[in-house]
């Protein structure tokens, strides 16, 4: 097998269902909507006395995090546990790779332990795709963030948040603000918003931090917050990575905040009922003012909660797509023998 099958094709089985989740790029409106609908039905599990459903009972899910993460890893872990899967968390820096074992050897070993799913975060773009195509084709691979490429489950929980608070995507204007160039979240959001036929996507930031291909992706580019935020329904702030400050891309933290930091004054340019989102972790006073982050328009903490249901949906759909047989509907309740 080679890497010639692109991620958006590799992640679907022959029936067009998800069997990995690598990217939101080129996913159909139907699949994107199915993820959101399935997540909606998982939302009631959190209200049960026993916060578990037996869907992935007996399955082994491995969290493979090559890059630090708290929120994403813990919500994936919680999602897998609420589906009754057994979860292994592998801390890569402390594992055998630092003793000289190659990545491939480690993955083959994990596969030999009959693992059913790997949730992969990696600093290199394309790492989950590589694992899905070359190393472990029969294990469902979920991309939990790869390099600058994609962070599809974050994008889907953002879509879930938008739909929950704003409804139909077709009438909405959504602005994504900050360091677009280095953001895998922004890229996945733009693809998902396009797939869900959003009214308008805008990206706002300094010229040095907006990639040239944004207009090709259907996003309108703004370098000014007042113009960019005018009449938007959804404001998505991105985290400004501190390490970028030391590069030549930005004059200073203070300057960035003055021009692009989301303050109460700048938020007033958006629609009065606009929601404010942020994938976290937030840098207060760097990209967002505390009064906005904790204010009435902020849905930042709700995003974290929604992340569990959305990840439960993606895990169960990918596991479902791995099973070769296809569902055929019969009789009452779509069952053979209700």
């Amino acid at each position: 097998m080679s890497l010639t099958i692109p991620p958006h094709k590799l992640q679907l089985n022959e029936h067009g269902q998800l069997k990995h989740f690598l990217t939101t790029e080129n996913l159909s409106t139907e699949i994107l909507t199915e993820i959101l609908d399935t997540a909606e039905s998982f939302s009631s599990v959190g209200q049960q006395a026993v916060k578990k459903v037996p869907l992935l009972r007996g399955k082994t899910v491995v969290n493979l995090f090559f890059e630090a993460s708290t929120r994403t890893r813990t919500t994936f872990e919680l999602a897998a546990k609420r589906l009754s899967a057994d979860v292994l968390n592998i801390n890569i820096s402390a594992s055998a790779t630092s003793k000289g074992e190659s990545l491939m050897d480690m993955l083959w070993n994990l596969e030999a332990m009959d693992s059913d799913m790997f949730i992969v975060r990696h600093q290199d773009s394309g790492a989950p795709h590589f694992i899905a195509s070359q190393v472990c084709p029969h294990v469902a691979i979920i991309n939990a963030g790869d390099g600058r490429h994609a962070h599809p489950t974050q994008a889907m929980l953002d879509m879930y948040t938008i739909r929950k608070h704003k409804g139909d995507f077709r009438n909405l204007k959504v602005a994504i603000i900050g360091d677009i160039t280095h953001s895998r979240v922004a890229r996945s959001q733009v693809h998902a918003l396009n797939g869900l036929q959003v009214g308008e996507v805008r990206v706002i930031g300094p010229k040095t931090l907006i990639p040239h291909d944004m207009e090709h992706l259907g996003a309108k580019v703004f370098y000014n917050m007042e113009q960019g935020l005018k009449d938007v329904d959804v404001v998505i702030m991105l985290r400004l990575q501190k390490e970028r400050m030391n590069s030549a891309l930005l004059p200073s933290e203070h300057e960035f905040y003055r021009l692009y930091g989301l303050t109460t004054e700048k938020l007033a340019f958006a629609k009065p009922d606009a929601i404010v989102m942020h994938p976290g972790p937030i840098n207060r006073g760097v990209e967002i003012e505390t009064a906005v982050a904790d204010g009435p328009q902020s849905v930042i903490l709700k995003q974290v909660n929604y992340g569990i249901s959305v990840r439960m949906a993606v895990l169960s759909m990918a596991m479902s797509g791995q099973s070769t047989e296809i569902t055929t509907s019969e009789s009452i309740n779509g069952e053979h023998g209700a």
């Binding site: 399935t38 039905s41 459903v53 869907l55 759909m317 596991m319 797509g321 099973s323 047989e325 569902t327």
Partner: peptide
């Protein structure tokens, strides 16, 4: 989410 045929049939659509 409680069906016993998930491993044979996968997730039923339109939950």
């Amino acid at each position: 989410f409680y069906r016993d045929d998930f491993t044979q049939k996968g997730l039923h659509p339109s939950v």
